[in-house]
Design a protein around this nucleic acid. Structure first.
Length: 269
DNA sequence: AACATCCTCAACCGCTCTCGT
DNA sequence: TACGAGAGCGGTTGAGGATGT
């Protein structure tokens, strides 16, 4: 076996010289996909060696997980997904792979990118640190309730509204056209923990947003690290067709909302 | 139309963790 | 127990497309 360089998927110096970097070609994708289809995942250095790809095992693994793997979803992150990401991040921090487990088809890389390009950006616009209590509270007590409000409003106004409402309120299964699944238990928890009567844009003078049940941060989180996966497995059911009917691209990161949040933050100081 | 700037996201890098010897 | 190699994770980068001037 070849000598391994520290922290890399081992290969000889000669091989390192001919390692390909950068975007993958269709041909490379095809080779990798065919190999893994036959031999299964894992042993990434062997994959690189046996396929003749001039890529590191690490690169092969990443390409498979983030792009070639079946069921990988790409495209707009839906409001439900955004809500889940915000909620799970508030519980687990930058544990992207753990968060990704709760968003089937989404990769840790995609969620990480979403966080950095959307959430961190908005924190900057609000002139506060993304990790500050102030910003986290704003997300939790203002942003998330309003996301939920939107989801529920959409649910009640769309043809699939009944199913969507059901998704948020209990754990009955429904199929969606894309076969996309998410974690209903977590969504249900978010909906039950978030105060959907938080101030709306039409009531931007209101500053008394709060949590249901007394406003304690600790009362918000109810899923423990150890059982979230079990919950999901037990209640495996589908996501609504929101993503498929034009709603999926919507989000709340609008100028209007930024102004509103700036006002909320100012009031809070 | 041309250029500048911004934004997104695929991919890389370095570190840590896990497992076998 | 110590060590080495593979695997996985989170942070960062940069190419290229989108948008603004």
């Amino acid at each position: 076996m070849e000598r391994s360089l520290s922290g890399t998927y081992g290969s000889s110096e000669e091989e390192m010289m001919s390692i390909t970097k950068g975007p993958w070609t269709e041909e490379e994708d095809s080779v990798l996909f065919n190999y893994i289809t036959v031999h299964g995942e894992g042993h990434w250095n062997s994959v690189a060696r046996h396929t003749g790809l001039k890529r590191t095992g690490k690169s092969c693994r990443l390409r498979w997980l983030n792009y070639l793997r079946p069921n990988v979803r790409r495209g707009n992150i839906t409001l439900e997904e955004q809500l889940l990401i915000l909620d799970l991040h508030s519980r687990w921090g930058n544990r992207w792979s753990k968060i990704a487990e709760q968003l089937p088809g989404r990769t840790d890389n995609e969620i990480k990118n979403y966080w950095r390009t959307r959430v961190v950006k908005q924190a900057k616009q609000l002139k506060c640190d993304v990790n500050s209590k102030q910003f986290r509270d704003t997300l939790r007590f203002v942003w998330m309730p309003r996301m939920l409000e939107r989801i529920q409003a959409h649910a009640s106004s769309s043809p699939s509204g009944q199913a969507q409402t059901t998704l948020i309120s209990n754990t009955q299964a429904h199929s969606d056209p894309c076969g996309v699944m998410t974690n209903p238990s977590l969504l249900s928890e978010v909906s039950s923990a978030v105060d959907v009567h938080a101030p709306s844009l039409s009531d931007s003078s209101a500053s008394n947003y709060n949590l249901m049940g007394g406003g304690s941060c600790s009362s918000y989180s109810t899923v423990e690290e150890g059982n979230s996966n079990t919950l999901w497995q037990q209640n495996h059911y589908s996501y609504s067709d929101i993503a498929g009917n034009g709603f999926g691209g919507a989000d709340l990161w609008t100028d209007e909302n930024i102004c509103f949040l700036q006002q909320q933050l100012a009031d809070d100081l």
